[in-house]
Amino acid sequence: MNSESPRGLLVIVCGLPGSGKTTTAKEIATRRRGVRLGPDEWMAALGVTLWDAEMRDRIEALQWSLARELLSVGTTVIIEWGTWARSERDALRLQARQLGAAVQLVHLDVPNDELWRRIQARAMEDPPIQRSDLDRWRRQFEPPDEREFALYDPRPAE
């Protein structure tokens, strides 16, 4: 019998609204038999507006607590929070590694015109996202570069 503790896997899916984070996270969860954690669905289930930043922070903290438990018993966890800042991704990676988990990063880079088309088509935010919001968010987003990707475990060929 193997006495080593099971090794979990954390997959961080980062990207702007409309980039396909939920779709990608669902595909990974199915393929890896993992647990997907994203705040939007929890907020909607609780009847909370997606614009409530304080509630989003609280839900993400709760989800991260659950994720750490799942990782510690060898489960695959897929986080789809957007993780726009490198510091957010670094914190998740380092904490997961402390638990002995492997960590992979998926960056969804979609042009603004396509993001805008998708956001309008899904129409899930109330009040709706404005094009000016998207443009501002693009300027705030810190896309991962090759040096950052080198800090993560390689993703298997799909």
Rank of each mutant, 00 (worst) to 15 (best):
A96R: 05
L70S: 10
P154G: 05
I119C: 08
R7N: 07
R147E: 15
N2S: 14
A53T: 11
E54A: 14
L16Q: 03
E88T: 05
T24W: 08
V77Y: 11
G18D: 04
G15A: 06
R136Q: 04
E114V: 11
M124P: 11
R147M: 15
A157F: 15
A45L: 07
S132R: 14
L115R: 01
P6L: 11
S5W: 00
R89H: 04
W81H: 13
E88R: 13
G74T: 10
R7I: 13
W81R: 09
S132T: 08
A85N: 14
P154L: 05
F149M: 09
E54Y: 06
R139F: 04
W137F: 10
R32G: 00
Q120E: 15
F141Y: 10
M1T: 14
P127L: 03
Q63M: 09
M1E: 13
R139S: 10
R131K: 11
C14P: 01
S19C: 03
Q98V: 06
E27M: 12
R122M: 03
W64G: 00
D113K: 13
P17N: 05
I78R: 05
Q63K: 07
A101P: 05
L10Y: 01
W84E: 00
G34H: 08
M124A: 10
L134T: 11
T49F: 04
A121L: 00
V11I: 15
D153A: 14
T30I: 12
L46V: 02
W64D: 10
N2I: 05
I119F: 01
R117D: 10
L10S: 07
M1P: 14
D153S: 12
L71R: 09
E4I: 09
